[in-house]
């Protein structure tokens, strides 16, 4: 199976005053195309840092990150931003929708960077909102939507550019049980029906259970793979 993501000898540390805190140590990780991977671990274990590195919004101290055949650690900041626009869909714990834009406009936002015409952007955004079941909420502002609906809009925004990978940082962390279930089913559906590669960081074992594979990260070290029954 082709690996869409490869992390080779990744280390990452942060400086807090004079103290250097090591977050990730010699991480090696291969994620095949079409994988639904859950990364679990206690708070401060480096899950989000790992996700940020894969998504190209942070840089490692050393090592290489290859996504869809591109070593993103060699890209300049502008190149990395352009790369993110086409290759990564990001889902946040707190949805991170732009409050002054409607659901449709939020989903259309990443398409501004693709060079599509206005009509094409509209078509893509409506299709993405249909996939998440919110085609009837196009003109609603985030404040007019429930938490679950907001996260579904965020998922539509993440998939609208048809990215190579979708990364989700605690996507159910702010949702009630029912909404969380809907969001996880949606992610699982994107993986199974559209063969989307999803990398999800979560604390929640029930969320992780929806993934095909679970990896545990503890004190900056990635533990062995565990297949789920999904």
């Amino acid at each position: 199976m082709n690996n869409i993501v490869e992390l080779i000898e990744i280390t990452k540390s942060y400086r807090r005053g004079s103290e250097i805190i090591s977050v990730l140590r010699d991480i090696n990780l291969s994620i095949p195309q079409g994988e639904f991977l859950a990364i679990m671990g206690p708070s401060g274990s480096g899950k989000s840092t790992l996700l940020n590195l894969i998504a190209g919004i942070d840089r490692p101290d050393s090592g290489r990150i290859i996504v869809s055949g591109i070593d993103i650690t060699t890209l300049s900041e502008d190149e990395l931003a352009r790369w993110r626009a086409f290759h990564v869909g990001f889902i946040f714990q707190f949805y991170n929708l732009i409050p002054v834009l409607t659901a449709f406009e939020n989903v259309e936002l990443p398409l501004l960077l693709t060079g599509l015409s206005k009509g094409e952007r509209r078509e893509h955004a409506i299709t993405a909102l249909k996939i998440v079941g919110l085609e009837h909420r196009l003109n609603h502002y985030p404040s007019q939507l429930s938490g679950g609906e907001q996260q579904r809009v965020a998922i539509a925004r993440a998939i609208v550019t048809d990215p190579s990978i979708i990364v989700a940082d605690e996507p159910t962390g702010d949702l009630d049980k029912y909404s969380a279930e809907q969001v996880l089913d949606l992610l699982a559906g994107l993986n199974s029906q559209f063969n989307k590669t999803i990398i999800m960081v979560t604390h929640d074992p029930r969320a992780a259970a929806k993934a095909k594979t679970i990896r545990h990260l503890d004190k900056g070290i990635l533990n062995a793979t565990r297949e789920t029954s999904f």
Binding site: I57, E77, D78, A81, R82, R84, N96, P110, L113, R157
Partner: peptide, 14 residues
């Protein structure tokens, strides 16, 4: 600030 971070994640440049 968070909106700016989100826009940057989506691929908007500096």
């Amino acid at each position: 600030i968070q909106e700016i971070g989100t826009l940057r994640v989506l691929g908007f440049q500096k």
